[in-house]
Write a protein that binds this DNA or RNA. Structure first.
Lengths: 248, 248
DNA sequence: CGCAGAATTGATACATCTCAAGCTGGGTGG
DNA sequence: CCACCCAGCTTGAGATGTATCAATTCTGCG
């Protein structure tokens, strides 16, 4: 059994790292037990596909650890990333039985999968899952709309700065809002994935990353490790409203 | 009382034009009666703002007739449309009390508004509204993601063709899939609004519309009335997968 | 060591933007 | 009834940002 096929049918929900954020976060003990009955874990290595658009999909899932991407492809091969899945994010759509997008693991990835039919059943019978899923979907819709502004109106430099700032915010758990100290993290995406995310070419991404480095907005250690010495200065480069910005 | 302020507190749900598609579509008689208690109609003239981003918003609403746009604006004035609201579409987010986007009526518009607090209460007590809202939100998310592909990867010509094809599909009620006959409809958007939708400038929109006209893909009568002699040919210009394409 | 994938950098092409000048059609007031 | 006006639109010429094509240069790893 390779890592890609690793399936563990049991792991305790009560000390699950995404217990309080995922689609199950509102569930009581009983509901959790019922979910537990239809769940199984699945792991993928970095770079491996989870599912292709159009494939039959008989599960929905939560990302437990690692990062995956949702991408859409045109006939001639042009691709656009339409979602970035971080731990606690939800994959799949209840009521639909084929995947709408390509899902690819960009780091080693573990997902908590639920067999679709029983999951739908459970959704119909208890309100907590649906309520939480609605909340999460509305958040995703907001994120998608912010992304649309980025794709439609931002310059290449603003796009790169925005992406780095998003990853810095969502990726680092330490609340960086407190002090203005430097932030350090690893880019979980290749230049090509960044290009797919931002609607750019890989070369333009590379040039703009170099430009931000040259201007001292970011510091690179190797290709992936990023230090942001002054987060406010990075935010200025995103073109976003600097104050707050975060609707919550 | 001007048209813009027109408020009618009563109209019968049972012969409402969006009864079967809106957020209330799953409600039974009892739920409908409760919704009826907290609803009121509001109308706006073409061009008028419904609400500005950041404003306090004490209602949520369904579009009954007409078209509205959801747009996001950057500090320096660049704007990107992030949603196009057609009849039955939902406005506002339960649990949030300020508007996240500018909402503007682009045609004369009538909305069925629900006072937010009681609406949220009703959502918590009955599953039908939340279920339907989840379904609608998932549809919107799919639409937003298709739009992201358009913004990030399509050429100006493909963008225009895509927009016209979307409007032709959603705007004309006659099921055009049957015969391959010509389709006629009015563009409900100005060139500027089209540019905001597509992440282009107004001049580029104008040029590409002219180009599609020159190439016989569309025929114009005045500035707004469009005839599409061969829908398949238009779809070819969108860059989308020609066969089916429509998930669902 | 040396290979392969990832990233950088350079030169040039091209799509779209920007700035600017007219056009069109419907409404208004003299 | 006509002249004017103005918002919306079209068209042109040139500037510019990003894509494209093409070498190198890194980097990690067998």
């Amino acid at each position: 059994m390779t890592l890609q096929d690793a399936v563990h049918t049991h792991s305790d929900c009560s000390n699950c790292p995404i217990r309080h954020r995922a689609v199950c976060s509102r569930c009581d003990a009983d509901e959790l037990a019922r979910l537990d009955n239809v769940k199984y874990y699945r792991s993928y290595e970095a770079g491996q596909p989870v599912i292709w658009a159009g494939d039959r999909m008989d599960f929905v899932a939560s990302v437990v650890s690692g990062i995956a991407t949702l991408t859409q492809t045109m006939e001639d091969g042009r691709t656009q990333m339409v979602g970035l899945l971080l731990p606690s994010d939800f994959v799949g759509r209840p009521g639909r039985d084929t995947a709408a997008y390509d899902v690819v693991a960009t780091t080693d990835l573990t997902m908590c999968c639920f067999r679709k039919k029983p999951f739908e059943q459970l959704m119909a019978e208890t309100p907590h899952i649906g309520q939480r899923l609605l909340e999460m979907t509305l958040d995703e819709l907001d994120a998608a709309r912010e992304w649309m502004l980025l794709l439609g109106r931002k310059t290449a430099r603003e796009k790169i700065a925005s992406l780095i700032s998003i990853i810095a915010r969502r990726g680092t758990s330490q609340k960086l809002s407190e002090v203005g100290g430097p932030i350090v993290f690893d880019l979980p995406l290749t230049r090509e994935a960044m290009a797919d995310y931002l609607g750019l070419t890989l070369e333009t991404v590379s040039r703009q990353v170099s430009a931000l480095k040259r201007d001292g907005i970011i510091v690179l250690e190797g290709k992936r490790r990023v230090t942001v010495p002054d987060f406010d200065r990075l935010v200025e480069e995103t073109g976003d409203d600097s104050d707050g910005g975060m609707l919550v």
